[in-house]
């Protein structure tokens, strides 16, 4: 009865082929193009130069890289700090209210960055948003628009990633074993202390992994920095797009993307290794 099943292998060739050609293929070709020479009249000339990578080692890209890392770290920390307790409360609610939250969060997750960014632009504008309200209440003498600014960009990023983190934690928090918490509560521990001393330590690995995921996610955001940030707030993603599309310098854009790819893979791989070691202990 046990024999080599041909049909499933043949079927497997379809997803394998599609993912290899259209997912791995472009990534591999991007590495190739990063060594090409820029052609001001077309896309690029076939060549093998390190020039595009050489450009990375300058004070401009140094500050852009630092800024990207710093902004992503801050945004991911803020997002997880807000979303985790929120979902912790939500899973304790009645099923009907959970569904309302989940649909709302799913809608936000699917909703375009462009739409969320635009909504914040309006909310922070002088003519229609918070500044106008504050001015009308007499709390702000001459209100000015709050965006573009670094704060506006951070708020936009957090509101973009919030739903993602919340939905990542939803199954874990919903299915968690509540026995220890209940035991602590029966012994008279106040709920806030249970949260900090029992729930947070249990979820430490999950929290760490969500921080890494969100850090990588925020490294790649493009719309929020361009819509809500000033040019001096722009991250590496904006610079890559700017070089590749606006300045038609695909080899340089590719080289920068490869550097980011290597950084991301090292980060994820390093984290996976660290958690495996911890688990083995």
């Amino acid at each position: 009865m046990k024999r080599f099943a041909i049909a499933p292998h043949l079927i497997g060739l379809y997803p394998l082929g599609m993912m290899t050609i259209f997912f791995l293929g472009p990534l591999a070709f991007m590495v190739v193009v990063s060594f090409y020479l820029r052609d001001p009249l077309g896309f690029y000339k076939v060549d093998f130069v390190w020039e595009n990578y050489g450009k990375f080692f300058s004070s401009f890209y140094y500050s852009v890289s630092l800024r990207s890392i710093w902004t992503s770290a801050l945004a991911s920390l803020l997002t997880v700090a807000l979303a985790f307790p929120a979902i912790f409360i939500i899973v304790g609610m009645r099923r009907k209210w959970q569904l309302v939250w989940v649909i709302g969060l799913l809608a936000l997750m699917c909703l375009s960055e462009v739409v969320i960014g635009f909504a914040w632009v309006i909310l922070m504008s002088e003519s229609a948003g918070i500044p106008r309200l504050l001015g009308w209440l007499g709390l702000w003498e001459n209100p000015r628009s709050l965006s573009p600014s670094r704060l506006a960009m951070l708020i936009g990023m957090v509101s973009l990633g919030f739903s993602l983190v919340a939905l990542m934690f939803y199954p874990q928090l919903s299915q968690r074993d509540r026995a220890i918490e209940e035991a602590a509560q029966t012994l008279g521990t106040p709920p806030a202390k249970v949260f900090f001393k029992v729930v947070l330590p249990i979820f430490r690995p999950a929290l760490a992994s969500s921080l890494v995921t969100m850090f990588v996610f925020y490294l790649g955001v493009y719309v929020m920095p361009t819509m809500l940030g000033r040019p001096q707030d722009w991250n590496m993603s904006v610079i890559i797009t700017d070089k590749a599309v606006e300045q038609a310098n695909m080899p340089l854009g590719a080289a920068l993307a490869v550097i980011m790819l290597v950084f991301t893979v090292l980060l994820i791989g390093g984290f996976a290794l660290a958690t495996r070691k911890e688990g083995a202990k």
Binding site: M30, M250, A257, L261
Partner: peptide, 28 residues
């Protein structure tokens, strides 16, 4: 392993920042 490899390949796009994927698609 064959089945699992295909599955893992499908998880890949989610792990990478979209800008890298977009840049790759652009040159491709």
């Amino acid at each position: 392993g064959f089945g699992r490899a295909i599955f893992a390949l499908g998880i890949g796009p989610f792990l990478l920042p979209p800008i890298i994927i977009a840049m790759g698609a652009s040159v491709f």
